[in-house]
Simulated scan of single mutants.
Amino acid sequence: MINKVIARSIGSAILALVIVSMIGCGVNPPSSALNDNVQHAPSGNKPEEVKPTIASSPMESWVGEYEFSEYAPPDQNRFYRISIYKEDKSYYATIDIDGFQTMERLQAQVEGDGKGIKIIFEKYLPDNLWEPYSPGDVLLRLEKTDSALNTFWGKIHPMLKDHAESGKTYFEKAAGSS
C-alpha cells in the first residue's frame, strides 16, 4: 500500500514538473494532463509576447558580392570577386582573382563600419597558385561615399597601371547580391 502511494506521489511530481516545464517553454499542455491539485504559476513569457531585439550591425550592409575586371589587349583579362559574409559575430571575405597566369584563392577577415572596411589576409584556400601574402596583411580597403564605392589598394594590386590609383571606383556590388 505504501509503495503504491509513493509511486503515485512520484508520478504526480514528475507530471507536475513536465507540465511546469511545458508552460515555462510556452507550450500548452493537453487539458487531460492537468491535475486539480497542481498549482501553475502564470507565465508572462508567451511566445506572442516575446519580441526579439536584433541589433543590426553597420557591417551588415557590406555582406554580398563585389566584382571588378580588367582587360589588356590583345587577350589578357583579370577578374576579381570578393564575397563578404558573416559567420557567428565576425565578418569574412573570400577573394577569387582569375586571369592570365593568375589564380588566387584567399580568405580574409573584414573589419570596419558602415562607411569603410579593411580586408585583412587570413589564409590561402585550395587551388591558390601563389603565396605572396602573410596573415595580417591589409589586402585592400573599400569605402562608401554618397555615390561611389572607392577602392584603396593594399597588398592586392590591379594588373593595369591605369587602375593603380587608390580612391577611385573599381569594384561594384554584383547584381542580385544582398
Score class of each variant (00 low, 15 high):
D88F: 12
S56F: 02
G114S: 05
F100W: 12
A7T: 14
G24I: 03
I156V: 06
E67P: 08
Y85H: 09
D127V: 09
E70M: 08
D162C: 09
S90F: 09
S31P: 09
M59E: 13
E48I: 14
F152K: 06
N3K: 15
S32P: 06
L140C: 12
I97C: 00
E165A: 10
E48M: 12
M159I: 00
D88P: 12
V63E: 11
S57Q: 11
V138A: 04
K168G: 01
A13V: 12
E143Y: 04
K144R: 10
A108H: 07
K51D: 02
H163V: 01
Q39H: 10
S90Q: 12
I156K: 03
T94S: 11
A55M: 12
Q109W: 12
L15D: 13
P58R: 00
G167R: 11
I6A: 14
V20R: 06
D36M: 14
Y170E: 04
P29Y: 10
I117K: 00
E60Q: 00
D146H: 12
W130H: 11
Q107N: 14
I119K: 07
S56Q: 08
P73A: 10
R105N: 12
W62Q: 02
M159K: 04
G116T: 05
Q76M: 09
I10L: 09
M103Q: 15
Y170I: 02
L142Y: 04
K144T: 09
V27Y: 09
S166T: 07
S31M: 06
C25F: 10
Y170V: 07
L142P: 08
S61P: 04
T169G: 03
V50A: 11
K115N: 15
E165P: 05
S83I: 04
R8M: 11
G114M: 04
S69F: 04
S177N: 03
E87T: 03
E65D: 13
V18C: 07
I54P: 05
I95H: 05
E111Y: 05
F68H: 01
D75E: 10
K168V: 07
N128R: 02
L139G: 04
M1R: 13
Y91L: 02
F100I: 00
G44S: 13
Q39M: 07
K115M: 13
A41I: 06
A175Q: 11
D146F: 11
L17I: 04
D96L: 09
I84C: 01
L139W: 03
I2L: 15
E49C: 14
A55S: 12
Y91Q: 01
L139A: 02
K115W: 06
D36V: 14
S147D: 11
S166F: 01
P42E: 01
F171E: 06
K173F: 05
G44L: 15
A33Y: 13
S31Y: 11
A174R: 09
Y71V: 03
S31F: 06
Y170L: 08
S32H: 08
G116S: 05
S31T: 10
S166G: 04
A108P: 10
I120W: 04
F68M: 02
K161I: 07
G154Y: 05
T169C: 09
E60H: 00
V50Q: 08
I84F: 03
